[in-house]
């Protein structure tokens, strides 16, 4: 390479008018030659440092990945998200419903268990009168000769039927209901006793009433059959 040509190219270079090809010739000259004229030593140092500076420019290792992540990757993520979100939402909804169903079912089971366990303490509403008084016997049939009526039974003034029935115990398991006519009995044994007593009294009362009714019916039938003697027959009833 003619050194004068190099000097001319350097002049163009420092004027900013050298082409790429001319600049490349200068770079190659300073790179390949160790025997540099004294007046070109500074230029040689500059070109050498420019080459080093260029080599020092290293691309960040993760830059390409960052670019992909923020462009194509993001798009894919969005697509994936739009595909996944409805499925996740549906799954969550289903899970929520199942959970709620399970919890309420569990509560129901617990509640039944509790019912079974606390059956003894389940309050039984018992009318005071059912405990303290027996059902009243029906009003006696009144028969007249002209208008014989069938036996009519209606509730009248209560008559103590189970006078001996014990008053409900006032224990911790017994409390008064809002209405004074009823008492809540929590003790199932006590409630069963009361119930059986009530049934027994009802049975005996019905039996007594039935006997009386049968007897009166027989008299009434007799009076109807013998209208002439009917007054005497009816007197017999009143007696």
């Amino acid at each position: 390479m003619n050194i004068d040509k190099i000097r001319n190219l350097l002049e163009k270079y420092y004027e900013g008018s050298a082409s790429n090809i001319e600049t490349d010739i200068l770079k190659q000259y300073f790179r390949d030659n160790n025997d540099i004229p004294e007046d070109l030593r500074v230029d040689a140092a500059i070109f050498r440092d420019m080459a080093t500076m260029k080599e020092d420019v290293a691309l960040p290792e993760n830059l390409e990945q960052l670019i992909i992540d923020s462009t194509i990757g993001r798009n894919r993520r969005n697509i994936i998200l739009w595909k996944v979100i409805p499925s996740v939402a549906a799954s969550l909804a289903l899970l929520t419903v199942l959970t709620i169903s399970f919890i309420s079912g569990h509560e129901r089971i617990l509640s039944s268990d509790e019912d079974a366990m606390v059956a003894q303490s389940e309050p039984v509403l018992v009318h005071k009168e059912e405990i303290t008084a027996a059902p009243t016997p029906t009003e006696d049939c009144t028969l007249t000769a002209s208008t014989p009526e069938p036996m009519v039974s209606k509730t009248a003034t209560p008559e103590p039927a189970i006078a001996q029935a014990p008053a409900p115990k006032k224990s911790s398991t017994t409390r008064k209901a809002s209405e004074n006519n009823y008492i809540e009995v929590y003790d199932s044994i006590q409630a069963a006793k009361i119930s059986s007593r009530i049934l027994a009294k009802l049975e005996s009362t019905i039996s007594r009433v039935a006997d009386k009714g049968i007897r009166k019916t027989e008299i009434a039938v007799a009076a109807i059959k013998d209208p002439v003697n009917a007054p005497q027959i009816l007197d017999e009833i009143s007696n």
Binding site: L66, I67, S70, T71, N75
Partner: peptide, 8 residues
Amino acid sequence: QETMVKIW
């Protein structure tokens, strides 16, 4: 990175 996002 910003340039590539703008291009995309």
